[in-house]
Amino acid sequence: MKHLLLPCLLAAAAPAFAQKPANETEAVKRTIQTFFEGMRKGDSTMVRATLAPGAVFHTISTKGGQIQLRPDNPASFVKMVGTPHQEVYDERITFDKVLIDANLASVWTPYEFYLGNTFSHCGYNSFQLVKLAEGWKIAHVIDTRRKEKCK
């Protein structure tokens, strides 16, 4: 009888263990979706709420055949989003990979960026998120940018 008890307990507990990663994955995705929803709406408060204190942004681009790593100021980005503008900033992403270990998440998202309905550029985002007391927050974003060979 003792030999049957442990397998039964483990089998009963398996669904509980399986649900947590899915819930965490969805929470991570929601943070990123909220970031882009705020960008589309021009809502700097919504965007700011997704960022961890000390968040860092980088862009990898090519200029004159040279690869460049350019830091972007998150505060400037948030201000730009909230400054009235004619065209909607519309970054369309899909979730390729979401990896989570404890309070760290790494997310890979291919994207296409549109100003209103006009295609601007594409590439990939790499997000690093941290789970703080108030939930998942974006700590680092680095992206590539190009106008051709999307996806």
Rank of each mutant, 00 (worst) to 15 (best):
P21V: 07
G65D: 06
I60P: 00
L104Q: 13
C150N: 12
T83L: 03
I138E: 07
A102T: 08
D143W: 15
V28Q: 07
K41C: 11
D43I: 14
K20H: 13
L104E: 06
P53C: 01
I138W: 06
V56D: 04
K149R: 15
T31S: 13
A11R: 03
R145N: 07
H85P: 01
L6E: 08
V47A: 07
A52C: 06
E87Y: 03
A52Q: 07
A16K: 01
E112G: 04
T144L: 08
N103C: 03
I93Y: 01
R40F: 08
P74R: 07
V130I: 14
S76L: 12
E24Q: 15
F127E: 03
T83D: 05
H3I: 10
N125W: 02
V88P: 00
G38A: 13
G82M: 11
Q68T: 08
R146N: 11
M46I: 11
L5M: 13
V28C: 09
C8I: 15
G42K: 06
A12F: 10
I100H: 03
G64F: 04
A133E: 12
W136M: 12
Y124W: 04
A13F: 13
R146G: 15
G42N: 08
V98C: 04
I100V: 13
I93T: 07
T118L: 02
S44I: 05
V141N: 08
Q128F: 03
F57D: 04
L9I: 13
G82D: 10
L6P: 00
V78R: 07
Q33E: 14
E112C: 02
V78M: 06
I67R: 04
P7F: 12
R70C: 01
Q86H: 04
G116N: 01
C8T: 14
G38P: 12
L4V: 08
K41R: 15
H58F: 10
Y124I: 09
L4I: 13
E148L: 13
K20Q: 14
A49K: 11
F119P: 02
H3M: 10
I138L: 08
G123Q: 07
G65N: 09
V98R: 07
G135E: 07
